[in-house]
Design a protein around this nucleic acid. Structure first.
Lengths: 234, 234
DNA sequence: TGTATGCAAATTGTATACATTGGTGGAGAA
DNA sequence: TTCTCCACCAATGTATACAATTTGCATACA
């Protein structure tokens, strides 16, 4: 009957939220979604409950579900917390990674590289998400992964612009990110914890600079808004 | 119609899991629970989905929900991760706490003290849970709180035995924990981050010693099992 | 005795109908 | 004109019936 299974629906909604196809704060109408995924409201509601648990959506009684917002207060804590979590995850990944996981990481990196070089922003951001999620799995620490997963939601949403190079200098940054990923794979495979942390923090700095500019973009050119003859125009 | 609201049900299940009234690994039967809480299976299933998101239960397709287990692998990461998270939460709590939250913390401490001194193990463990959850709120960091919440689930379940003093020396440890709580309140109120971290780590050490003995109890007396005349009794 | 197979019971998953809540717009009074 | 109140509508919350899947047991066969 229904073309989508429940897990398909779950994955698809995750994807749409991460790619900001569903923007932060968007109202999620149960009836509409259940029609879109060709399933009844009952299983769809369960999917939403689950997404709430994962931090993708927030729900309030009698008022439905909304895509988790990204207000300024949250972003502050994001920049504050991310390096610590990412670094610790990297260290643990070195200790606990399995050979199979290394293979999965290399596959994810391949997917990421292709999407990034093709300037397919949404695909690149999702592949990057997947790459770091695998490192999270390697860490094998449910407690930290709970933090990581939430950080990644916001990280991936903010980095959407990263992979739409507006200038050649920005395209270079993407290439640098690819190189850093390769170095991280090597460090994790060799179980070199200190190196992995170092690379992770470098990778974070690259990403942070880009995101901070997204959050706090360059101000508009001053001379455009300073019409001396229109002081009352506000 | 139903005596329990959905949020009552959610809270009660949380409580029963934290107090190990529902032991780790217990199968949660939907029909039984919906009858117990006098609501239909639909809202009950949503409650379970939510508890899964919070890490209280695990669900698998067509096989229902189970109370999250506490196997040896998880415990290892628990002891590995907890101090870092608790310490960082304490530091952030100093920075971000509000006056209202300090009041709430003092109230929680009062409840905890009463329960602990009355040797009401389940109530004491839950009150302690509440105390540290409030410090988590103070930290005002969704990412770390996600970790904290999961740590607390296992912490509270393991500390059930802590508040059942088997010997006078153990009763003293409970009194020490109460004192540490008071000191932590003062440090957070005074926004003394370094002190708060220090106290938190001391508090952790106290708790850890007790829990490690729970996880790895003293071996049984040797002479009870060494019947020299019954070597084939196994 | 051990293993395979098929049926039956129990349990989970889904659809739909109905109840309840929150918002909105229009009518009436100040 | 503006404020208040009420009725209606749209959307969420719940109950129940039914479908699908799993599990346990019994039976047959090697």
């Amino acid at each position: 009957m229904s073309r989508f299974s429940k897990s398909d629906c779950l994955e698809d909604l995750r994807r749409r939220i991460l790619s900001t196809e569903l923007e932060p704060g968007t109202d999620l109408d149960e009836a509409g979604l259940s029609q879109h995924y060709e399933m009844s409201r009952t299983p769809l509601r369960e999917v939403l409950q689950r997404l709430q648990g994962e931090g993708f959506v927030v729900m309030s009684e009698n008022r439905g579900a909304k895509v988790a917002s990204m207000d300024i207060a949250v972003l502050r804590t994001f920049f504050q917390t991310a390096p610590m979590i990412y670094a610790n995850i990297a260290r643990l990944a070195c200790e606990n990674r399995t050979g199979r996981q290394i293979d999965a990481l290399k596959t994810a990196q391949l997917t990421f590289t292709k999407a990034a070089k093709a300037s397919n922003a949404a695909a690149a951001a999702l592949a990057n998400h997947q790459f770091h999620a695998i490192i999270g799995e390697m860490a094998h620490n449910t407690y930290l992964v709970a933090s990581l997963a939430r950080l990644q939601i916001d990280h991936t949403r903010m980095s959407q612009t990263f992979y739409r190079p507006a200038a050649p200098s920005e395209a270079m940054l993407v290439l640098k990110a690819i190189e850093q990923h390769d170095a991280m794979i090597a460090a994790i495979e060799a179980r070199e914890g200190a190196l992995a942390i170092d690379l992770t923090l470098q990778h974070w700095d690259l990403s942070r600079d880009r995101m901070e500019r997204f959050v706090r973009p360059d101000p508009l050119p001053v001379d455009v808004i300073s019409f001396k003859d229109h002081t009352n125009a506000l």
